[in-house]
Design a protein around this nucleic acid. Structure first.
Lengths: 274, 274
DNA sequence: ACCTGAACACCGTTCAAGT
DNA sequence: ACCTGAACACCGTTCAAGT
């Protein structure tokens, strides 16, 4: 796959400079769950604002550039060379602000997830909050497949911790606590992250509606051809017309029902005995 | 991280030759769900067995070597150079049997999952089969973290299709069909794959019990330090002593309860009205 | 302190040349 | 047909040298 315009020579021009911050729309919240971003906070202190380049290199600018590159060129397009070209700086400069490429990816995913979590927070309906969070994550991944890949790769990265906490708050508000909360939270988070990874790979392979339709048709045909089992035949037919988003939300509902099933049954028993 | 003995020069000796097939214990089943392995099946036809090297290169031997390397050196240790050194052959030879490295990884994961699926199949208790399958996958990933990473990366690889089918058969035996089956199957498979990816990353980072304990303690302490929210404090305490396997199985049970919760409630209603 | 860019130690994949 | 191994076009990361 050739990728004209991504070469280093093509990026060496200075025309990328004035674009940053205009195209980039992710607002960095930085809260306490975001340890990768809340350093430097007191670096303004007593320093005179001697006229340095207004666009001096910083962790934020590097992460912004990373997200831009991931959005336009995909995960395979994210190279340290692309980042330095985008920022018109030298190779090693990045390593003064970030320890390695993995941290760059984790910080980029955290920036996206911060927004999703913030948007889904609040409200007086914890179940609704959980559904909103899950759907927000799904849609973020649909728009940026690289986020899904990154989320499903590393359990203790900031973005995943944010998701854990948001889920924990909602479940806690629903009266779940202790080990039950850990079990329920783990079930929901693992489901969401699993769907994230799988959907991301699908979205990357067949991004738009037409290509996706064609891809699913081809896959369904191959399934049907490979295995005459009626179950496989039926699954192939379902695959062709299934809606990823609806299926994802159905899964969230299954887990919510499972978490509260014993309660629901107890409630019915109570009603019946009255 | 230095890795003595993995260099090309060190591997150039022929002493790897007679080992293959003795150390390697994964039995290839090859069934119809395994399209990557069931070619060549009629290549024996009329050919005279002219005395070639008894260990001639083949797709199977390449995949065996791949699994051995992944098991001993991890995912980062799997390089085409390591594979060719292991097989004492030239770089390009691999490409006569396999199209690229991704296919190699997919085939290796499929080999491992084939065994797990076969071991969990059968029996007259579909719920038990689902639990056995899920636990088998968990344990395979615990022993070989690279399998978890690979499973959560690509939705339509042979190993994942095998899991889908096994789950579909069990759910179908439980009377779930149509869209409900697709929704339930997707929920369960995504949960298992999500847990797979997360657990794999954890297992890779802290493989044995002692390192794991230390890692979790450190992480819990960091959580507790970063956020004074009582919920986070409690989660940190739970994290320190949580059992990954028990939590994983609790998730499977939540899922099963979720699928049958409406049925269970209906049953209680029926009982109550009798 | 921050930045530069050449250099290092790797990769996956290809392909002319061999048998 | 199958295999070889040099060559190609990349990587992430380091580090002496600059400002």
């Amino acid at each position: 796959m050739q990728d004209p315009g991504q070469g280093e020579a093509a990026e060496a021009g200075a025309d990328d400079r004035d674009v940053h911050g205009a195209l980039f729309s992710v607002g960095w919240t930085g809260g306490p769950m975001n340890p990768l971003l809340d350093q430097r906070s007191n670096s303004v202190k007593m320093t005179f604002m001697t006229s340095r380049r207004t666009d001096a290199l910083s962790r934020e600018r590097i992460v912004e550039a990373t997200i831009q590159i991931l959005d336009t060129a995909g995960e395979s397009g994210l190279t340290l060379r692309a980042v330095t070209a985008h920022l018109a700086t030298g190779r090693g400069a990045i390593y003064h602000h970030v320890t390695n490429k993995d941290e760059l990816l984790a910080a980029a995913a955290d920036g996206v997830i911060s927004q999703v979590v913030a948007a889904a927070a609040g409200g007086d309906d914890p179940r609704g909050s959980i559904r909103a969070l899950a759907l927000g994550i799904f849609e973020a991944i649909d728009a940026r497949p690289w986020v899904g890949v990154q989320l499903s790769r590393e359990p203790f990265q900031p973005a995943v911790l944010q998701i854990w906490k948001a889920v924990g708050v909602s479940l806690s508000a629903l009266g779940v606590g202790g080990t039950a909360l850990a079990d329920a939270g783990s079930a929901l988070v693992n489901y969401v992250l699993g769907a994230a990874g799988q959907h991301a790979a699908g979205a990357r392979r067949a991004p738009d509606g037409a290509a996706r339709k064609e891809f699913l048709d081809g896959l369904a045909a191959e399934w049907a051809r490979q295995d005459s089992d009626p179950l496989v035949q039926e699954s192939a037919a379902l695959l062709r017309e299934h809606d990823d988003r609806a299926q994802f939300l159905a899964g969230v509902n299954i887990f919510l029902a499972g978490i509260f099933s014993s309660e629901a049954i107890a409630a019915v028993r109570r009603d019946a005995s009255d």
